[in-house]
């Protein structure tokens, strides 16, 4: 039952998208954000089309220790892996609204890989470690900013493993255990 309803919904949604794309190619293109969960059809042009979707990034603020959401529109991707890369790069580029990005300035994504069981391997260049503040709070902010952003926006990603220079590491700054995958954590997000 549930599945059938979903399929119908999905078909309707795709129709809507197609209609929307047709409309907005002619007219003004503003605020049609498409729900990230609905879209699965690989038939849409890849990687970048006129269609966009809203993504939620988790950054820090000076108001408290928890992460704060910032939404932004990114192009619609058919490939989960391309979408994930784009999201990580947008996250590393920092906030557009003055929030604090919990990554060292020159942090770069080296590789990204999503395994069949939903484990995302996010591989950074060494900079993520070399210029890290090395406190527990900083470790936690870096890790959960990434993990929550990826798992919240991409439902195919169930858990996240963080690699540095292609290798597994015990910790980032001497605190949290990087040898096991991280899952989404709601309690590190401010309400």
């Amino acid at each position: 039952m549930e599945k059938k309803r979903r399929i119908i919904l999905a078909v309707l949604a795709v129709l809507l998208i197609v209609l929307a794309v047709v409309f907005f190619q002619q007219g003004g293109r503003d605020s049609t954000s498409l729900s990230s969960g609905v879209f699965k059809d690989p038939g849409v042009p890849d990687p970048e089309t006129e269609a966009r979707e809203t993504v939620t990034f988790y950054f820090l603020t000076e108001d408290g220790p928890n992460l704060s959401p910032e939404t932004r529109e990114i192009p619609l991707f058919a490939s989960v892996s391309l979408k994930a890369r784009r999201i990580v790069n947008e996250l590393l580029a920092g906030s557009e609204k003055g929030l604090i990005c919990p990554f060292p300035e020159k942090t770069q994504l080296r590789e990204f890989y999503l395994s069949e069981d939903g484990t995302a391997f996010v591989d950074f260049l060494g900079e993520v470690r070399n210029h890290h503040p090395f406190g527990s709070s900083a470790d936690i902010a870096t890790i959960y900013s990434l993990v929550n952003t990826l798992t919240f926006n991409i439902k195919e990603i169930k858990q996240v493993v963080i690699l540095v220079d292609g290798r597994e590491n015990q910790t980032l700054g001497g605190h949290l255990d990087l040898t096991k995958p991280f899952v989404f954590r709601a309690d590190v997000i401010s309400r």
């Binding site: 820090l60 503040p133 406190g135 527990s136």
Partner: peptide, 11 residues
Amino acid sequence: IHTNSSFRKNA
């Protein structure tokens, strides 16, 4: 025993 550090100036 540790001492902390943050990306936030006010932490």
